[in-house]
Design a protein around this nucleic acid. Structure first.
Length: 463
RNA sequence: GGCCCCGUCGUCUAGUGGACUAGGACGCAGCCCUCUCAAGGCUGAGACCGCGGGUUCGAAUCCCGCCGGGGCUACCA
């Protein structure tokens, strides 16, 4: 489908700082950024912190950190300002109150004094009578005189609400089915349904790109924009949801893989996560699977976005991450590896990289492969002929230059002379050096260790 | 319950009436390479296109019904 023309493309993401930064936030941020960059538009970050109960400043920090790590940089936001500041909803409360007052004055909203219990009773009654629930409008029809605490409720005008979705085409909703909903909570804060469209309009957002969970919310928000006589966004795009293995929407509580920081901690490359996220719910229509960010900017389009939710799959992510690691420049890989290997210097990491590269799915995988360099493993108990082979190897490498290649030559020579498989010689050495059955190739395993340490570990096993 | 979205190999997907004996990728299996583990190469298994009706000479592709999944329906976002 054609992307509607807009003189000035302005998009935004509006995460809530209610816990760790979410994978879904990264996903929608990515699509927003891609669209902004390819249309030379502006990408804004707005913090939707109207939930007094659950918001925390440190969670907001986590959002900055996570998106920054992924390289999904915003042009406007609470931390860097912009022409539509402030970008934190908690700092825009006056605006919402002002608009709520206007709607009240215009008779497009009304005060609701109902308690949570009364509302709950209404809802239960409707369910009991098996009819769809809509607020009864009792506070519109016959407001109680003796109460002071109130919320502001929108008087839903009903009728048809139509809008354009860049993925699904023309959408039509029947607003007669929508009950009057809350605009301002009794704590004086706006609800998401109110604050979000007000800000989108005030910030001149041209395209609202967000998760599919908001598709049904769109008519609510459009009615508010209309009631306020604001201009509507040019178009919406509701992206398919990222689903967990169980098929449900990824949730913070149930699915730890929704935590963005997890990926950084385990050593997934931001490039790889971006690559994977792009492919979850979108495809290029070509066999290409590995994409840089710039390539994505060139080829991404909403008409190739999936309509159905996509399940998150570690295996595919692992593969993409491995591809990125293998393709990475050695020096750059050293730089990325550094935080995972605080006990090693760059020179050592650099020497390990050629052998390491094809053996890592994620950066943290380097640790079990190299930890014998800074820890002293238990000496293994070996058979007599294994000890003999270590002795032979020991003699053979005694005066060899301490590099993988000459070590390889010397070692294969003695191994082949033994008449049995090379493994019979290499495995005892591996065990003596690392205490493990799995390690880098034996020449690297030796060469990475200082010669005296290596020889000492062999000597104590083979006497 | 109501409304909305969706339904192709285990997973991500190609496919928009005939080139489909349904293609690719991940994963899986086997073989090759090989000092372990990977990487790499080759081969293979795996989808009666959710089900049932139509329309059509012809349907994964169009229509209807059903079933299944997800989302929204909060003084959460």
């Amino acid at each position: 489908m054609e992307v509607p023309e807009a003189a000035n493309v302005r998009v935004r993401i509006a995460p809530s700082p209610t816990g760790f930064a979410h994978l879904g936030t990264a996903s929608t941020a990515l699509y927003n950024v891609l669209f902004a960059r390819q249309s030379r538009g502006t990408f804004a970050l707005r913090i939707d912190d109207t939930d007094q109960e659950r918001n925390r400043p440190e969670y907001e920090q986590l959002i900055y950190e996570s998106l920054g790590w992924l390289g999904l940089n915003w042009d406007e936001g609470p931390d860097r300002g912009g022409p539509y500041a402030p970008y934190r909803q908690s700092e825009r409360v006056d605006l919402y109150r002002q608009y709520a007052a206007k709607l009240l004055a215009d008779g497009k909203a009304y005060k609701c004094f109902c308690t949570a219990e009364e509302l709950e009773a209404e809802r239960r009654q409707a369910q009991f009578e098996k009819r769809p629930y809509k607020y009864s409008r009792r506070c519109l029809i016959d407001p109680p005189k003796d109460r002071t605490e109130f919320a502001v409720r929108f008087k839903v005008p009903g009728g048809e609400v139509k809008f354009k979705d860049m993925i699904r085409g023309e959408m039509v909703f029947d607003a007669d089915l929508i009950g009057d909903f809350i605009l301002m909570k009794s704590d004086g804060f706006p609800t998401y349904q109110f604050a979000s469209p007000v800000d989108d309009a005030a910030m001149k957002i041209s395209h609202v790109i967000r998760g599919e969970e908001h598709l049904s919310n769109t008519p609510y928000q459009l009615m508010i924009i209309d009631a306020l006589a604001y201009e509507r966004p040019v178009a919406y795009a509701h992206m398919p949801l990222i689903l967990a293995k169980d098929g449900a929407k990824l949730s913070k509580r149930k699915h730890p893989e929704s935590n963005l920081m997890l990926y950084r901690e385990q050593g997934y490359l931001p490039e790889a996560l971006i690559n994977y996220l792009a492919l979850l719910g979108w495809n290029p229509g070509t066999p290409q699977e590995i994409f840089t960010f710039d390539e994505l900017v060139k080829v991404f389009s909403f008409d190739r976005v999936q309509h159905a939710g996509a399940r998150f799959d570690w295996e595919k992510l692992n593969w993409i991450n491995g591809e990125w690691i293998r393709a990475m420049d050695d020096a750059e890989l050293v730089r990325r590896l550094r935080p995972f290997l605080p006990d090693l210097d760059d020179a050592t990491i650099m020497r390990a990289v050629p052998a390491l590269k094809t053996r890592m799915v994620k950066l943290a995988d380097a640790v079990p492969l190299l930890d014998y360099l800074w820890t002293d493993p238990e000496p293994p108990v070996l058979e007599p002929d294994a000890i003999d082979r270590i002795k032979a190897a020991f003699a053979a490498i005694q005066d060899v230059r301490w590099e993988p290649e000459p070590l390889h030559e010397a070692l294969t020579r003695v191994a082949d002379e033994s008449g049995v498989s090379r493994n019979k010689t290499f495995m005892p050495i591996r065990l003596s050096l690392t205490g493990k059955k799995i390690s880098l190739p034996i020449d690297y395993t030796l060469a990475l260790l200082p010669k005296d340490v290596a020889m000492q570990r062999l000597r104590r096993v083979a006497g």
